[in-house]
Design a protein around this nucleic acid. Structure first.
Lengths: 396, 396
DNA sequence: ATATTTTTTTCATGACACAAATTAAATATG
DNA sequence: CATATTTAATTTGTGTCATGAAAAAAATAT
């Protein structure tokens, strides 16, 4: 959080990455850096091997007069980046090239329950090793690993306050990982990684400020302000799931009362169903939802109340941040449980009203892999920053 | 939100302003700018008249060996800055010098009710004129005016979406002001100005990230992230008062239900009291509070519920932002209505628990003038930025 | 009177960005 | 087909900014 000014090199590189492929003159326009400087910087990036020139054959019909522009693009094969997401019993890995193209995917069950830090680091090492083998790469080829796990995490310090995967609290988990892994590791809370995934691969592309809300077992939030994830003082902000929506309300698994999660989380839904007892499934949310869909009023009311609470949470977020864009991001199922369209209508009508366009709310459903891709995106960012900082004009 | 990198000049000047008085060598240490550069920059600032040297007579006893350091400080008389706060029926003005020292204060009743933009701009002109006269200054001597008013305001554009003082909605009020006032005007929401006041004169001095919450008629919030006020996309975020604390809850004057303000605002307290009817005062919160203090259970319960709702709001803010510091800022009375110590205890125990220090919560009570001082601080910032940007090394 | 210490300034240098001029590489045109 | 035109990219010279090293300044210590 120090060198926050984007150096010219960073800006140019970002422009190339964003555009996929782009000519120098357009980089100049996009960044409002002079063409002269763009030439200088791109020649550095070229000789450092971070980007390449794409000489496309001139298409006679479309071609215009003048010297043809030569497109630049990020060299995908410059670095191999890995992203890993740790879930309850599974680790999923994605290998990306430096452009962000998927090189390979891998998933593997891991022991359930809490482990010691070193033990768990070894598991992660082994998973990554297996993933590399699977894709015909070597562990040593991986330039950086992004690692997402549930819990309260201070990303800046690679520090874990608490995680369901670790036995101890307050672990310098980054160090444990460094001991067994040859590449730098970048640790973050999984909600933040969804935000990163949206920023690089999803609905947040090209946006500088937005909020991502994820609904699964719990409710998570990622806040992007000025292209950066906002993390708060201790690195554990954005706990939307533990925002209070009811005074003296339902008991949450965090031990507090009235948390949003205690109404919207899957355990909360099942709890309600189980109280009612006969006739209503209370072992899987999907089954409960099917029951509601089939017309069962009680099951329906469970989802309705949860939906309204979720709506409250959304309204509060919007009233507090006045964001330009809110992305509801999650796996297919979770979002459908709450009658989305009606919910969003209610949210929009319940927000502080101004005579200016309401924040846009986009729903983005996608699969299991996004977590790992977000982790990888985080690592790509970090590696990029590091590699570019290591440049200087005296490099031959 | 563009030229966000602090130029060396800005940094050095800020260091001088923060330190009140400071030698070049210490500026270099504080900013990690080299002494050579500090000399260059300070000589510019000196010849531009923004700062002065303070040659203190050497004190024989304390003096150390070596060339004595000469302290620099901001030249208070460089510019005269005004801050004005528009309230229901009063306008209060404060005149500050460039250091932030109070030159004069002034207060004047203004017509109640909504006015046209030009009409209201004229009122503001007249008030400022009177304030200047009062202090023996001329209107033309004022280099910048910070203006705070209630309502939804986009500070970046000096635009008013809505204000209780203006007849029309969506007013380019900045333009209306430019037509009648000779100096640049900087408009902002009053909650943000409290944040500015705390940052420059209050509990936020030296802090880069904090949240200010104000409790008066409504509940306001100012968010400072990285020394900057966070304003959201349309410039109207941080509406903590209209955060929902109860689904389908009490009617708020904004037309929505369940807003925090609908439980904590003074009209909400009085509404509750008036329903009860006999025996309980329902025309002034102070009277109602006195009644509660005297032991009336009903009156007490009104404040208690409001206090708990306020606590929910605080908890939510902390869970979302994970701030280092929260400042409860307001006039003497409002804060006392809610049993502060107990409230803060509850808040601290209800926040997501991490094994890291809880955010600090400071209570800051102060008088009516803070609004105007905050407005002036905002103007000082803007004027400073502008004056320093206007410098360059070719200046003789 | 001279040495020492500390702050401040001066000076030469390097990184960076830019405008202006130049070169490169294509198409349009008579 | 040679030349003009157009557009992109590069080169060149210049200015700003920050810096390290050396020098100067201004005090106390010996």
């Amino acid at each position: 959080m120090q060198d926050q000014r984007e150096s010219g090199r960073q800006q140019v590189f970002e422009a190339i990455r964003n555009a996929n492929q782009i000519a120098r003159i357009d980089i100049a326009k996009a960044t409002s850096i002079s063409p002269a400087t763009v030439t200088a910087i791109t020649s550095e990036l070229l000789s450092a091997g971070l980007i390449t020139e794409l000489h496309s054959d001139p298409v006679p019909g479309v071609a215009k007069r003048g010297r043809p522009r030569v497109a630049l693009s990020v060299r995908g094969d410059a670095f191999l980046i890995a992203g890993m997401k740790i879930a309850d019993r599974h680790a999923s890995v994605v290998l990306l090239d430096f452009v962000g193209e998927t090189i390979g995917e891998y998933s593997q069950p891991i022991p359930n329950g809490q482990m010691g830090a070193d033990e768990f680091a070894t598991v992660i090492h082994d998973v990554l090793h297996a993933a590399c083998n699977e894709c015909g790469r070597r562990l040593e080829d991986v330039t950086g690993l992004g690692l997402g796990m549930a819990g309260l995490i201070d990303a800046a310090r690679n520090f874990v306050y608490w995680s369901p995967s670790l036995k101890a609290r307050n672990v310098e988990f980054g160090e444990a990982l460094s001991n067994v892994l040859p590449m730098p590791v970048f640790l973050d809370n999984d909600a933040n990684l969804v935000a990163k995934a949206e920023q690089h691969f999803g609905e947040g592309q090209g946006e500088t400020d937005f909020i991502v809300i994820t609904i699964e077992q719990g409710v998570g939030m990622g806040i992007v302000i000025g292209n950066e994830i906002y993390r708060g003082e201790r690195g554990c902000g954005a706990e939307l799931g533990h925002t209070k929506v009811q005074l003296e309300g339902a008991m949450c698994r965090c031990g507090q009362r009235g948390c949003l999660e205690a109404y919207v989380g899957d355990y909360a839904l099942l709890r309600e169903a189980s109280v009612h007892g006969q006739g209503i499934p209370h072992d899987s949310v999907a089954a409960l939802y099917a029951h509601a869909k089939a017309g069962d009023a009680t099951a329906l009311s469970i989802f309705e109340r949860a939906g309204r609470m979720l709506g409250m949470g959304l309204v509060n977020v919007i009233n507090i941040f006045d964001p330009k864009l809110v992305i509801l991001s999650g796996e297919q199922a979770s979002l459908d449980f709450f009658d989305g369209d009606r919910l969003l209508e209610w949210v929009k009508s319940s927000v502080v009203q101004v005579d200016a366009p309401l924040p846009e709310i986009r729903v983005h459903r996608w699969g299991d892999l996004m977590w790992a891709k977000g982790a990888a995106a985080y690592a790509i960012e970090a590696v990029t920053r590091q590699k570019i900082k290591g440049l200087s004009r005296d490099a031959a």
